[in-house]
Design a protein around this nucleic acid. Structure first.
Length: 263
DNA sequence: ATGGCCAAGCCTCTTGGA
């Protein structure tokens, strides 16, 4: 069983590239973020032709998440509202950033955590409120499911190993203690970083800026993660960042990360 | 040291990304 996460930065622009990657890497489940397309315009056929069932939640221009699976996607949930109630979630489900489904007994939650804009901006405040909501959503999910994999683009480098230049005095969004603590609070419910089970080195990145030759210079961030409940974490046999598609023509600025369990 | 890119929309500039 393999579950991959990949921020594709527009599925319409990247559909050929994603298909090429899936043919070479026929993962069981692929969670994608930043699809940037309304559901009716999502290019379903190329992925159906490869044997993938789809669940999508998108919007015009921004955000958007989708799941592709070779076995059935069960109990699909869009956003936080189905579990927390629309009156509690309010505006936080307007942006399409969360989708969940059960595959082969594993509850998979696919997230596109808000970027956060500038420090102390409205977007930064929104990111923190969204992470608080994620805590409540995760708590209720863990009440119901034992094997849970929360993956996606977290837009947070969990510690200083996960960013090429550790932040100095000026707060850098994605690395601030407040964001890191908000993430750790979610993980304290009983989740652990799959990648760090196998690799404790620095400079293991999943995103590189398009500018300034960031990729060839390996000036990146590790912001795409899989967080697993205890039994899943113990059973995991590998978690790998696949740098190859970041080198292809017209790449996403993120690259896929794949967690695996023995069959 | 600095700055360097890319996607979508209605579009030749603005917004967003991290």
């Amino acid at each position: 069983m393999k579950i991959a996460t990949w921020n594709v930065n527009s599925i319409r622009t990247r559909q050929g590239l994603v298909c090429d990657w899936l043919q070479a890497n026929p993962v069981d489940v692929l969670c994608i973020q930043e699809t940037k397309v309304v559901d009716g315009d999502f290019p379903r056929e190329p992925f159906a032709a490869l044997g993938y069932e789809l669940a999508v939640s998108g919007q015009k221009s921004y955000n958007g998440v989708a799941m592709m699976s070779r076995s059935p996607l069960k109990d699909v949930e869009i956003g936080f509202s189905p579990r927390l109630g629309a009156e509690v979630v309010g505006e936080l489900d307007a942006q399409k950033r969360a989708i969940a489904a059960t595959v082969q007994g594993i509850r998979i939650i696919n997230l596109y955590v808000p970027n956060g804009g500038d420090y102390d901006s409205d977007k930064y405040d929104y990111k923190l409120r969204w992470l608080n909501q994620l805590y409540d959503y995760t708590k209720l999910t863990l009440d119901k499911y034992t094997d849970v994999c929360i993956c996606g683009d977290f837009n947070i480098a969990p510690d200083d190993r996960d960013i090429h230049t550790p932040p100095g005095k000026t707060p850098v969004v994605g690395t601030t203690p407040v964001e890191r603590e908000a993430l750790q609070r979610v993980l304290s419910l009983g989740l652990a970083d799959a990648f760090r089970k196998f690799n404790s080195e620095a400079q293991q990145y999943s995103w590189w800026d398009y500018r300034a030759g960031a990729f060839p210079r390996n000036r990146g961030w590790r912001i795409d993660h899989h967080y697993l409940t205890e039994a899943l974490y113990k059973r995991a046999s590998s978690c790998v960042i696949d740098r190859e598609p970041r080198q292809w023509t017209k790449p996403s600025d993120h690259t896929p990360v794949v967690v695996e369990w023995p069959d």
